[in-house]
Design a protein around this nucleic acid. Structure first.
Ligand SMILES: [Mn+2]
Ligand SMILES: [Mn+2]
Ligand SMILES: [Zn+2]
Ligand SMILES: [Zn+2]
Lengths: 138, 138
DNA sequence: TTCTAATTTGCAACCCTTGTTATTTGCCAT
DNA sequence: ATGGCAAATAACAAGGGTTGCAAATTAGAA
């Protein structure tokens, strides 16, 4: 995710307005590595701006996801986690405290961790949806 | 997941009763590779047993998950998908129709598919939770 | 058969997220 | 600087998925 300053330009270029609420979400998420939920972002924003609604935080987060500046990480059944790091990396999900840590190395030993399982989730178009797609893929 | 017959024994051994409703869930899921939601299982069960409640289906599915006979696959934000295949395998999630296919080969080319991304999700205990665990892990 | 603990149902409640709409506001053009 | 308009906000309700609860039923051991 770009810096709050760069996001200001990006949003205006797309016809999106740069409100104080959105800027607060930018600040709350920029450089964050904790994969917070929308609710956590909301709490964080409200520390300096007590009247912001959770709905508005969701809106701002969804905008950032649509622009590709943030990724929504969905693991398990709880709330979605938001990640300003959109470069290719993986995640370790703690079954006890639900902490999510970034994992750069692809497969093996994670020092200090207890790894129960590693799931690889592929995303894209299945064979039948690929076949009926207008733009052809290999 | 074991056969419905074997599950009968397993359930009784654990002090769980084998009801017609549970047996219907066993039958509905046995050998299934479509990763159905609880709702889909419910519909399937009701074809032969119209009075079964969704609550009971959830109960049966949760029991099976707790016994390790079924895994709940959580990808994206929708409903959980249930998988009677608990051997180590991965999944392909279609971004269009949300179909989930099994993937046996770990990394590469999936013929006919359009692969946008491959996420590896590690699950277990993070470093701090591992450290405070009674039973030590490496 | 009898007894008891487990299960089923139907319902309400929960959590997370989005729809709706009246009001406010950013921001472009004047 | 001001006006006007499209976009955003806030508050609220509602939606989907899942679980909690309690009364009635039932499996299965004795
Ligand atoms: Mn991350
Ligand atoms: Mn599977
Ligand atoms: Zn942990
Ligand atoms: Zn598809």
């Amino acid at each position: 995710m770009r810096s709050p300053g760069e996001l200001t330009t990006l949003f205006r270029d797309r016809g999106l307005k740069v409100t104080p609420q959105r800027q607060a979400v930018f600040e709350a998420l920029y450089g964050d590595e904790s994969h917070p939920t929308a609710d956590v972002v909301h709490d964080r924003v409200r520390e300096h701006m007590p009247t912001v609604s959770l709905r508005t935080v969701y809106q701002a987060l969804n905008d950032l996801v649509e622009l590709g500046e943030v990724q929504a990480v969905s693991v398990g059944t709880g709330a979605a986690r938001f990640d300003p790091n959109v470069s290719g990396h993986h995640h370790f999900v703690c079954r006890d405290c639900e902490r999510i840590d970034d994992v750069v190395a692809s497969p093996p030993r994670l020092k200090g961790y207890t790894v129960d399982a590693a799931e690889i989730v592929f995303r894209g178009l299945c064979a039948s949806c690929t076949a009926k797609q207008p733009t052809t893929s290999i």
